[in-house]
């Protein structure tokens, strides 16, 4: 799936389909398809308070879901127990999805933007894909999406949509 998207981006034929989506429904869809491995003691806690307040947001649900699910799977691989999935409004406008875990955090070279892989064990294109999808989200007044990586008691992955 990501390969197809990246290929299309390279061919300049990647098409984002921006439409309004109910945030509660969307967040449920994101987590519902994440299957925890048997015997795992992981827990995904969702903080969707802001989703109710915001109601809906315009974005490509298919692509953004891929990005967030990749981040969640990554958190499950590296987190010890608690994975948090949250959605919030940005003070300066915009919507922020956050996936955080309680693992060792991102290696320094990933934070520095040098390494492209969200996880060296995965296909190695996760972050490239996430950045691409984020940046392709734009508004008529020129704002673009982005991803932000940080370490705060574990890895914190944020996708900000304009």
């Amino acid at each position: 799936m990501e390969l197809l998207t990246l290929y299309r981006a390279g061919e300049n034929s990647l098409r984002l389909v921006i439409e309004d989506h109910d945030l509660i429904d969307f967040c449920e869809d994101v987590t519902a398809e994440i299957i925890l491995s048997p015997g795992s003691n992981h827990q995904i806690e969702s903080d969707l308070g802001a989703a109710t307040v915001l109601g809906a947001w315009a974005f490509d649900a298919y692509q953004v879901k891929m990005v967030l699910q990749e981040a969640l799977r990554n958190a499950l691989r590296h987190g010890k127990q608690h994975i948090r999935f949250a959605v919030a409004a940005q003070a300066e406008g915009g919507l922020r999805f956050t996936v955080s875990d309680d693992g060792p955090g991102f290696p320094q070279e990933v934070l520095d933007g040098e390494a492209v892989a969200m996880d060296s064990g995965s296909s190695g294109i996760g972050l490239v894909f996430a950045r691409l999808i984020a940046e392709r989200h734009a508004t008529p007044d020129g704002h673009h999406g982005r991803i932000e990586l940080a370490n705060d008691g574990g890895a914190v992955f944020a996708l900000v949509l304009p």
Binding site: D20, W57, A58, P140
Partner: peptide, 8 residues
């Protein structure tokens, strides 16, 4: 409130 294509 926010940017969205249908309202644009």
């Amino acid at each position: 409130q926010r940017a969205t294509p249908w309202a644009s």
